[in-house]
Amino acid sequence: MVDELVEPAAAGPRRRLRWQPWLTVPAVVAAVVVALLPHVAVVRPWVVPSLQAVVPVVGLALVVLALVLALVRRWLPALVLVLGAVLGVAPALVPWPIGTGTEQSAGGAELTILSLNVQYGRADRQAVVDAVTSHDVDVLVLLEADEALLADLAALGLAGQLPHRTEPIASGGAAGSAILSAHPLQLEGRIRLPEGVAQFDQPVAVVEHPELGPVRVAAVHPVPPIDAVASWQASLRGLDDWQATHADLPLLLAGDFNAGYPHPQFRAIAADLTDTASLAGPLPRPTWPLGARVPAFTAIDHVLVRDLVPVGWEQVTVPGTDHRGIVATVTSAAAD
């Protein structure tokens, strides 16, 4: 019997990662733009910082598009988009609180702060008072405030809860800011920027907490980049210089920074500080705009601390303003 010669089965067609330039080239361009955008410090034209603000949203969109491409087996452009999204979104995440290296002291007292942009003084007065009461707030930082708003809040009983405040607001509108406190304040004027730089009021005061001791609080509100982009960058750089030279006391920066982690100018400020929002995880929680045709998409309101440890963080919604408020609770750092 002659053994039959059995030919080996023909190998199936090999699957190759096809280049598909009509998809891959646009994917590469999109991925490179998103990956580089959080590192670009150029502010002209103003559209650059505006695009940086939506990097997390664009990164998510790239991932969704990559999933769609993967479903139809367009692997190469899908991988390119995912890589661009990861590289772009990574700098925009809230970092783990390693800036100060501080640890919470055992049984330490706590200080709770509420920071809120009241949108030209339009925020619902009673809702502000209710937020202060329900969260047992020690310090209230108000941006875009005026004396009419403060008078209304006082008439609703806020003066009894927070009897101490910074100097009268002269400007009002978008530029007006105030710090109100349940504890005595030592007024330190305002953060000053060089002449010729458009700037809002940024009052500074030292809160004399009966248990934590003195804590320096600054109400932060740089001008928005759309109105004066060069002044916006100068304001953030000036704030970075200011916080670096005020290291003698525990520091608390609170307000509407008009910037977030997608902006390298903001990351420079936050590098040596601890973001209280880190308690909520790495994903930025959008704070603006509320009540618009689109959902809130960018986190520009922050509470940053140095030589203090965050133990509580949440957002509050107050009718009448397009910003979410930030409620943060901090305690003293453990002694070395």
Results as ranks from 00 to 15, higher is better:
G325E: 00
L143E: 14
P214D: 05
V128P: 02
R73K: 14
P56Q: 05
D136N: 15
A10G: 13
N258Q: 15
A205G: 05
L153D: 06
Q265C: 11
P225F: 00
T166H: 05
A219Y: 03
V206C: 02
L149G: 06
L156W: 08
T100A: 07
L37W: 01
I226T: 15
A35M: 07
E188V: 05
R73Q: 13
E103H: 13
A155F: 06
V32W: 08
A151R: 15
L253C: 00
L67D: 12
G107N: 09
L279Q: 03
D130E: 15
T245S: 15
T331W: 02
Q202E: 13
R16Y: 09
A328Y: 01
L236T: 01
P210S: 07
A30S: 05
T245L: 12
A247F: 12
T298N: 10
R267Q: 04
Q104C: 13
D275S: 13
G260Y: 00
I169H: 04
Q52C: 04
L62F: 09
N117L: 08
A30L: 10
P95G: 02
E314N: 12
L149H: 03
P163V: 02
R122V: 10
Q243H: 11
R14A: 14
V80H: 01
A333R: 07
V80W: 04
L142N: 02
H246W: 09
L273I: 08
G320H: 06
D136L: 15
P264D: 09
V206A: 07
V327N: 03
A123H: 06
W313S: 02
L142K: 02
A90K: 11
G84I: 07
L187R: 15
A268D: 11
V55M: 03
W288V: 01
W96T: 15
G99C: 10
A92P: 08
F266Q: 06
R125P: 12
R73N: 12
V129G: 04
L87T: 11
V132G: 01
L249N: 01
Q265H: 14
V64Q: 10
L193M: 13
V305T: 08
A277Y: 06
W19T: 11
T321M: 04
V318G: 01
D240F: 09
L5R: 15
W96N: 10
V25H: 06
A148S: 14
L249T: 01
A234N: 08
W232E: 00
Y120W: 14
E147S: 03
L308W: 06
I326N: 10
A296S: 10
V57Y: 06
A296H: 01
I226N: 10
D336N: 14
W232C: 02
G12A: 15
G157K: 09
A296K: 03
T317G: 09
R73C: 10
H183P: 04
P8S: 11
D3H: 14
D146F: 05
E147D: 07
A123C: 08
V72T: 13
R267D: 04
L187G: 07
E144K: 05
R18C: 11
L36T: 08
S235I: 05
G260N: 00
L5C: 13
L65T: 12
L212Y: 04
